[in-house]
């Protein structure tokens, strides 16, 4: 029973961080800041839900196969997400997308735009 409560709390924490990330995606001022907010969903949002599901699979369902698969899902999201964000940000910048309000510091633009 105690494990059940802990796993519910972890899933709720994950959902709260996913909500924060979603609000950020909708309300942030420019492309790159929106991308930053989306990282919140992919890290603690996913980690909270997978940890909760992992505890549930091990102690409530008692199934090692499901537990391993949940762990692998979490691991794969953590390993592949940064590569995706990096390429999206780089591609957006190369395609000429700039924030409406000019950035105070923009070393990438200074070094490569000329």
């Amino acid at each position: 029973m105690a494990v059940r409560i802990i796993s519910d709390i972890l899933i709720a924490i994950g959902a709260i961080f996913a909500l924060a990330g979603t609000i950020g995606i909708l309300k942030m001022p420019d492309t790159y800041s929106r991308m930053q907010a989306s990282t919140c969903v992919a890290t603690l949002g996913v980690l909270g839900v997978t940890l909760g599901a992992l505890l549930y699979a091990v102690f409530v369902m008692g199934s090692a196969a499901i537990a391993i698969k949940v762990a692998v899902i979490g691991l794969l999201i953590l390993v592949t997400n940064p590569i995706g964000s990096h390429m999206l940000a780089k591609g957006a910048y190369k395609a000429g997308i700039r924030p409406e309000k000019k950035m105070d510091v923009d070393d990438l633009g200074r070094d490569f735009d000329e």
């Binding site: 907010a37 990282t39 953590l78 940064p82 990438l108």
Partner: peptide
Amino acid sequence: ANSITLTPGTITMETT
């Protein structure tokens, strides 16, 4: 670079 991108608030965009 991946650790930096994975922490919310920072994204590695290019290396030279």
